[in-house]
């Protein structure tokens, strides 16, 4: 067990013991539920835990009583705005995010939907690791130029590609300043696991020849309130994912923080802000690094 005893991990554990309900799949209402249950199980020490009429009116827990809990308001996709925060101070360039992403999406060889660069803005500041997913820009240069509307922006902030419509003109690749888009130059190698899935724009697989692909913020996971594969795989806990509407981001270790507060207090910035693309991926400066800087 890591030395970071985060609440979330413990909550998860407690919930597993108490009810066995908090599997990853039931994540949407998990946190509050777990909190309530955990409280309930220690009710011998904590005699009363209750809400009252002035708040929600629901009895959420009392000594020995069965609990009900307030739903954590499952939000429709169009009420969300997903956002990612990458703490460059924590990224040690291990590229496990890339590996996990490629495994999860069966990413064809040669593509790195989240790619870790060794950036060096100037000689004085030195080099730092720079993971680059798709920025999911709000002012999408790519979707703007797509001649057939195959790539599009969803209200929840995610830019998707319909590979059943894409004509493979690669104009979106030309338009993307972040080089986040990839083209299937040949028929990608398939696995049976991949082919077993029915194609959906939220999966982007089974992959096919002659169309454009990119990072899509794992919408299928986000739908369940889970963080994307890259964030889950980041052992440095550098990648935060969350919802701007709920004003929350969380990382693999379960450090759940207010998004606006995090950006404000740590001087968050966006890559190539001056291009006006309004990315949905934010970076925290590589300050007080917890890893040795790249040699470059």
């Amino acid at each position: 067990m890591s030395t970071r005893f985060s609440r979330r991990q413990f909550l998860k554990l407690g919930a597993l013991i108490a009810g066995g309900m908090a599997t990853l799949g039931a994540a949407r209402s998990r946190t509050f539920d777990e909190l309530a249950r955990a409280v309930g199980d220690t009710a011998a020490r904590l005699p009363l835990f209750r809400a009252n009429a002035q708040t929600t009116g629901e009895l959420i827990g009392a000594d020995g009583e069965p609990m009900t809990h307030a739903p954590a308001a499952p939000a429709a996709t169009n009420q969300r705005r997903y956002v990612m925060v990458i703490d460059l101070a924590k990224c040690d360039g291990c590229k496990e995010c890339t590996t996990a992403c490629s495994a999860m999406h069966f990413v064809p060889p040669g593509q790195e939907w989240i790619k870790v660069f060794e950036n060096r803005d100037n000689k004085v500041a030195g080099a730092y690791w720079f993971p680059r997913p798709c920025m999911q820009c709000d002012n999408t240069p790519c979707a703007k130029v797509c001649p057939v509307g195959a790539t599009f922006k969803r209200e929840d902030g995610i830019v998707l590609i319909d590979q059943e419509r894409c004509i493979g003109c690669r104009y979106c690749i030309a338009a993307c300043p972040y080089a986040s888009r990839y083209f299937n130059w040949a028929e990608p190698p398939h696995t049976s696991e991949e082919l077993a899935q029915k194609y959906s724009v939220e999966l982007n697989y089974p992959h096919r020849k002659g169309v454009v692909e990119k990072c899509i913020f794992c919408p299928a996971l986000a739908r369940e309130g889970k963080i994307p594969a890259c964030a889950s795989a980041c052992r440095m806990n550098a990648i935060y994912f969350g919802d701007q509407v709920e004003d929350v981001v969380t990382n693999h270790a379960g450090e759940t923080v207010s998004f606006t507060q995090l950006i404000r207090e740590k001087g968050g910035f966006r890559y190539m802000e001056d291009l006006g693309t309004e990315p949905r991926v934010w970076y925290l400066p590589p300050r007080d690094r917890v890893y040795p800087a790249p040699k470059g």
């Binding site: 703007k144 130029v145 797509c146 001649p147 057939v148 509307g149 195959a150 419509r165 894409c166 004509i167 493979g168 003109c169 690669r170 104009y171 083209f183 299937n184 020849k209 002659g210 169309v211 454009v212």
Partner: peptide, 29 residues
């Protein structure tokens, strides 16, 4: 030549079916 450059020339008709006037490629077309 544009069609030869395309990854999916079989979907050429998508340009007519779901062409987007905002795209310079449609202006070209």
């Amino acid at each position: 030549m544009i069609i030869i450059d395309m990854g999916r020339p079989d979907r050429l008709l998508n340009l007519l079916q779901s062409g987007r006037l905002q795209s310079p490629i449609l202006w070209d077309l």
